[in-house]
Design a protein around this nucleic acid. Structure first.
Lengths: 253, 253
DNA sequence: TAGTGGTCTAGACCACAAA
DNA sequence: TTGTGGTCTAGACCACTAA
């Protein structure tokens, strides 16, 4: 809809196939047309059709095996990268109204973790923003984000009740890669107060580092979701793999 | 090492590049050789080199942008699909000794959820196995897995202290696609007893459905990890995307 | 401006699945 | 056995980055 859609043939073919799957033309389990059929239909080469299919496989929409036609996978629809990095965009994509309330905004020296994640020198300053994020007025998440100074100086000029990520993109920043770590933690006293839950209630914690296309960190965020309200879904297969399990070792007593 | 390694040129090139990155030949942030350089070096066509690079991008190892050379991303090393579906394989890949203890094995009618996830008719039977999984003797996870009858009949003949997934693969089953949903839940009384934690302690819950190449469900599992011991990591980018956020709505009081 | 990656074509041979 | 997807080649043109 609003996406820039850097049009390429294989992208538009992939989008058409995705739309057809979403519309139920190809139900879960159904077999898709062969590469040669689509090549004729779109007057494209086989390589281009394969590129389109590869995008669907990467998105976990279809599965592919040699000798048999590709089949549609079932399950929840996927969201785009932009939906994942921006809470506001995600909320709207699932039909809920996002909002935000600032709990704290600081300009201070980076902690050790922040300096490491943002690749800053020790003692460098960061802007640190704590927000409570809501869906249709109900608080579901606490967002604690550290920005390096050049980014933070832009952030302080942005209305914090809406989407900061979208404003930063309008200002020319490019959010290209993100790395997420997901675990479960008990709510601290502050968490409990901001989310209106019992202290030590289980929260889903997502720590995220987002970088621009050349790998320069743009933000480091620790988000805590109400465990019962939000979950993360991952698809992976023998061919494509973007998830990994992580073990911290027995660090705490 | 032990992988079947269905050799193809682009795979072996990708493996060599991965090994070089792992070994530090290309450090995080470093720029990789150009496509044409590698094409000369490996006496391969540019398309093959691109295919190798695509595999690295999909695994979140490098980033790629038009006009500039590809660069190495930082962060934890990725695990293979097999490592993710099999606890035993994952444990060994991070250098710990896995073990398991059976808490319960039942042959009974499927619950509603199990029937839906395994695509069974209502009233069909499943085999349901509850195991406590340990790393170096410390319990870190409870695994509750339902198998459809044809699979379950194989499972009952397998030594449950080791890897069931690996035995099933030796028997010819192919685990091809998996879908994971991750959230946080409080420990039940049984959870608390099996994991030796306080009741209502935060646990990371992973629900996983694994299918064979044609989409037939092989297992449905609900695993609960100690939140402080295990985390999941996801990489995504504007190009590749396998993670999605999920919102259940206000279903519980 | 020179070099790089992104896209696309038109062929070829092979491994595998399904009928 | 036939058709499918998996791999690979050798070219071409373009958009973009970086010097």
């Amino acid at each position: 809809m609003t996406a820039p859609d850097n049009a390429s043939l294989y992208r538009s073919i992939a989008d058409e196939l995705k739309a057809a799957i979403r519309a139920g033309v190809y139900a879960p389990g159904a077999r898709l047309p062969s590469e040669s059929e689509l090549a004729d239909q779109y007057d494209a080469s086989r390589g281009t059709i394969r590129q389109a299919f590869a995008a669907l496989v990467a998105d976990g929409v279809i599965s592919s095996r040699r000798g048999a036609r590709r089949t549609v996978l079932g399950g929840p629809r996927l969201q785009s990268f932009a939906d994942l990095v921006s809470f506001s965009r995600w909320a709207r994509s699932v039909g809920e109204e996002p909002s935000g309330r600032v709990a704290r905004l600081e300009h201070r020296a980076a902690t050790l973790v922040e300096a490491e994640q943002l690749a800053l020198a020790e003692g460098a300053n960061v802007y640190h923003l704590t927000r409570v994020r809501m869906l249709d007025g109900r608080p579901v998440m606490i967002e604690r984000t550290a920005y390096p100074e050049p980014v933070g100086e832009l952030v302080v000029g942005i209305d914090p009740s809406g989407s900061i990520t979208e404003r930063l993109e309008e200002l020319g920043l490019i959010f290209a890669d993100a790395e997420h770590t997901i675990d479960a933690v008990p709510a601290t006293a502050e968490d409990a107060r901001l989310l209106a839950v019992r202290s030590r209630a289980p929260l889903l914690r997502e720590r995220r580092r987002t970088t621009d296309p050349s790998g320069v960190p743009l933000e480091w965020s620790e988000d805590r979701y109400l465990g019962q309200e939000v979950a993360f879904t991952v698809r992976n297969s023998v061919n494509r793999n973007a998830l990994s399990r992580w073990h911290s070792g027995p660090e705490v007593s």
